[in-house]
């Protein structure tokens, strides 16, 4: 037993290992068990960060997903060079993730309901928002408006992308501008905040939804905890800026466990629908006679 334990412990750092260690409780978890639970620790319920494609798989019925604008790729408008040129960072991230940008958008069915889904992928430069991410969020909003579909946006992001400077900052305005029109038209938008959602994303399109959900234990806040700690020179209260803290302070509607997320979003859509979605359904019903 001890030998076996050690053998797996050594293997835990290997990418193809069968076991992994929970960040939160330290338990060794059989990966297949965790994957069955959508990367939630069976011991302590810790929600590991999902990649964008994993999130799509979690929420969209198999075989119904149509991704859009996957070819749009991050561009280096400012010729930004810090320790490394931004173009090198982009290239490396594209090679690592096999994707062109941090935002994935498209349409598909959620439990048989047609929706537009957008997912920010933390694996791509920390899910940061530059011009193309802002553009894709906006394109998703416009798709939902045009096709009269519910809009679901799932975020995990460190904020605006520094390497695109003020261009990134202005994506906050671009996305909210589009949401304003979608909202005025009666569109239904449900936002899902996952770990972590901070900075320019939480200060723009992410909280501007009809209903705001969060996964348990997610870090959600405007300023990063380290920035606040440095500014205030004092310890932060336990649980500060976690989903539970936000719920307690009236900032979100519900905390939803990952295993319930798909069903719960479906239920919310069925409850409210919104004038836009109802109009679509009426039209479809009429066409079907």
């Amino acid at each position: 037993m001890a030998m076996g334990w050690n053998r797996f412990r050594k293997k835990k750092d290997m990418p193809s290992g069968l076991w992994t260690k929970c960040d939160q409780c330290g338990a060794m978890i059989f990966k297949r068990d965790m994957e069955k639970r959508y990367k939630v620790c069976p011991e302590c319920d810790h929600h590991f960060v999902l990649t964008g494609p994993e999130r799509v798989e979690l929420l969209i019925d198999e075989g119904t997903w149509i991704e859009e604008f996957a070819e749009l790729s991050a561009t280096d408008r400012l010729h930004f060079v810090d320790k490394v040129p931004y173009t090198d960072r982009i290239e490396k991230t594209v090679a690592k993730t096999g994707r062109n940008e941090a935002m994935i958008i498209g349409s598909g069915q959620l439990g048989g309901r047609p929706i537009v889904l957008g997912v920010l992928d933390f694996a791509f430069m920390g899910g940061s928002m530059g011009v193309i991410v802002g553009e894709k969020v906006t394109l998703a909003i416009e798709h939902a408006e045009r096709e009269k579909l519910p809009l679901i946006l799932v975020t995990s992001s460190g904020g605006a992308r520094m390497q695109e400077g003020t261009l990134s900052l202005m994506q906050m305005a671009k996305t909210c501008n589009a949401l304003g029109r979608f909202d005025s038209a009666g569109g239904l938008y449900i936002s899902v905040l996952t770990h972590p959602t901070t900075g320019g994303v939480i200060a723009s399109f992410a909280p501007m939804a009809d209903m705001v959900l969060a996964e348990p234990g997610a870090l959600i806040g405007f300023a990063g905890p380290r920035v606040i700690q440095t500014t205030l020179k004092q310890d932060l209260p336990p649980g500060f800026q976690r989903s539970e803290f936000l719920l307690e302070h009236g900032q979100i509607d519900r905390i939803v466990s990952r295993e319930d997320l798909k069903e719960e979003i479906g239920r919310l859509i069925d409850f409210v629908k919104g004038p836009v979605v109802r109009a679509r359904e009426a039209k479809v019903a009429e066409a079907e006679g």
Partner: peptide, 21 residues
């Protein structure tokens, strides 16, 4: 915008987002 405990408790991000929209 001010980075602080009270600011976060009272929804700094939401307040800014709301104004922008």
């Amino acid at each position: 915008a001010y980075p602080g405990i009270g600011a976060e408790e009272r929804g700094q991000a939401q307040a800014i987002a709301m104004n922008i929209l």
